[in-house]
Structure formats: structure tokens, C-alpha cells
Amino acid sequence: MDHAADYTYCEALLRRNDPDRWLASLFLPVALRSHVVALYAFSDEIARVRAHVSEPLLGEIRFQYWRDVLTGERGGDAPVAAALVDTVERFRLPREKLISLIDARLFDLYDAPMPSVTALESYAAATAGSLFQLAAFILDPAADVAAASRHAGIAYAVTGLLRGLPWQVAAGQTYVPRELYAGSDLKTDRPALDAALAKLRVLVRQNLAALATEPATKSGQAAPAFLPAALCELYLPQMEKPGYDPLATLVEVPQWRRQWRLWRAARKIV
């Protein structure tokens, strides 16, 4: 079956909803790029479920649809689902990794706080980390990328969560680990919030430093899969400038700077 239209839809979706991953995908091998984009589009669909449902149960029903698609209990009857199934079958991707990503996203549907840094790391590894690992698998099935994927996933996901704090608080949800501000109210106790966020930025930079030591990110066919993580250090300094309000400031970086950072990172791969 020809899935060209499905992959085209995935690319348009990704370009609109997740421009950073879309920009990074431009540096992937042309023959494999659409399949990595299909993974990213699937992740975007899962990440946006909460915003499209009125109660958690409806979100769980949507998640079950994706589980059924991945297990073959129902066909891929939508463009992203069709492209995802085609990619999974073509590259023999581990379906359990994608299902684990869905399971981790159950946290998104409810308002319970993230309990600890360890829980946040597990969430990030199961979501963004799984995407890095699966993208790398498409580029090179033989590459050992488990450790690199975990570091990249934590760094990338936590950076994104820090950027999204204004929307999270407005929606009644936060991914800032409760143990970092125990006894305080994030909305009213600004010193406690600033201290917690500073610790999370340290966590991001620790994982970026560890990622930089991983051979799989420096050379080989799988290395371009980790390019999105190169954007983290563009955003973190914006959160450390005078006048930054974590509950109101939207952290943005011009597209030309993001493209330049990705180009420089891609040039270093041998």
C-alpha cells in the first residue's frame, strides 16, 4: 500500500505543532526521514490528548485506540496511525516501547503532581527518551544507544516542561517534582519556585554533559537522531535572564538560531 499521503500529513502536522523536531528531521537521511517524522507525529498526537478531551476517561479511551493500533487489534484508519504502523512493520520497531510511551503519558491526563525527580526522570526517559531510541533504531538498528537515549530524553523533555510551565499551571498541572518544593505553593512562593527550577536546569545540563560523552552521538549512522537535544542549551539561558517569570514568560528562540545550532551540531558528526 502506498502511504505517501499519510507521511505527507505527518510532516505537515509536525511542522505546525513541533517545529524543533521538524527542523532537526531535515538533517536526517532522506530515505529514512519520513519514518522518523511518523514517530514524532505519533508522539505529538499522544502529547496533545489532554488538550482535546474534557475528562481523563476520554483521554484513556484515546490512548487505548493507539494501543489497539500497535497491537494489530484495529487498523491504522487515520494518516498518523497508518504511517506509524507502516514504519513499525518496515523497521520491526519494538511495539512495547511505543506502548510504554503511551502508558507514561497517562500522567498527563490527571492533575496529580510529579512526586519526585526520580519519577520525572522515568517519565522523560519513557517519552522523549523512547523517541530518541526508536529514531536511532531506524537510522541504525545495530547501534547501542540506550544510555544516550535516556540522557537525551531527560534533557530534552525537562527543557520542554520548563518552557511549558505557564500553560501547565494554567491547566492545573505541573511537572515540577513535589519534593523540590514540599510545603510551598508554586504560584505564591516565588523563591521556592526559582530554587526548584534552578535544580531542574542543573539536571538538564548534567544529562547534556553525559550525552556528550556517548560515542553514539558523535559518529555513526544513528548520531543524527540526537540532534534535537542540541537545542536545549539555547533555551536554558533564556530562563536565567533578569525579568524572567517562569509562570508567564514564553521562552522562545528565533528560528534562524535554532537552525544554526542544529547545523553546527550536524557538522560535528563524523
Rank of each mutant, 00 (worst) to 15 (best):
H3P: 01
H3N: 13
A5K: 14
D6S: 14
Y9E: 07
E11M: 07
L13D: 01
R16K: 10
P19M: 00
A24P: 02
S25R: 00
L26S: 02
L26E: 04
F27A: 10
V30D: 13
H35W: 03
L39E: 07
S43W: 11
S43H: 15
R48Q: 15
A51L: 13
V53L: 02
V53Q: 07
E55T: 05
L57H: 12
E60Y: 10
F63A: 09
F63C: 08
F63R: 04
W66Q: 02
V69F: 00
E73S: 00
P79R: 05
P79V: 12
D86N: 13
T87G: 05
V88C: 06
E89C: 07
F91M: 08
R92Q: 15
R95I: 00
L98W: 12
S100P: 14
D103Y: 11
R105E: 08
F107V: 14
D108C: 10
L109E: 01
A112S: 12
A112M: 11
M114H: 06
M114R: 05
P115F: 04
E121M: 08
S122D: 15
Y123E: 09
Y123W: 06
A124G: 08
A124Q: 03
A126H: 11
G129K: 07
G129P: 08
S130Y: 13
L131W: 10
F132G: 04
Q133L: 11
L134C: 09
L134W: 09
L139N: 03
L139Y: 07
D140N: 04
P141Y: 03
A142F: 10
A142C: 12
A143F: 02
A147C: 11
R150H: 10
H151V: 02
A152K: 01
Y156R: 11
L161F: 14
L165W: 10
Q168K: 06
Q168N: 14
V169W: 08
V169D: 12
A170F: 08
A171I: 04
A171Q: 15
T174Y: 03
Y181D: 06
D189T: 02
A196V: 04
K199D: 15
R201Y: 11
V202G: 06
L203Y: 08
L203V: 08
L208P: 06
A209Y: 01
T213R: 13
E214T: 00
K218A: 14
G220A: 00
G220F: 00
A222S: 02
A223N: 00
A223C: 01
F226K: 01
E233N: 14
L236Y: 05
L236N: 00
Q238W: 08
Q238Y: 08
P242E: 10
G243R: 07
D245L: 12
L247C: 09
L247D: 05
T249P: 07
V253W: 05
V253R: 09
P254D: 12
R257E: 13
Q259I: 12
Q259V: 13
A265D: 01
A266I: 00
A266H: 13
R267T: 13
V270I: 12
V270E: 14
